[in-house]
Amino acid sequence: MPEQPRPRIDITVDGAAWSVPADCTIAAAFTEHGEPAWRRTRRGARPRGLNCGIGVCFDCLVTVNGMPGIRACLADVRPGDVICTEEGSGFGEHSS
């Protein structure tokens, strides 16, 4: 399918500069970047990314501009977003 180039924006992911499509969700930005995981679980430190994709499962949580627990599948990416992948609960403490 012929594609005209998509507009892109700059964001920061774990301190690295990324150029991502301007018109997509944060989860789509990770996917387009070739990165299927952006969280590690609380107990097993297992990698997780997109699962339900529609805001139900809370597996795709990321920290955006300091706010933890944002559903990457729902939130549109915005220019200048500072995104951090999450470890554990994403709130900085360690449980179990």
Partner: peptide, 13 residues
């Protein structure tokens, strides 16, 4: 595993 998702997730992307 990352990469396993619901059919709806692939559709939503």
């Amino acid at each position: 595993l990352p990469g396993v998702m619901s059919a709806g997730a692939a559709q939503a992307l």
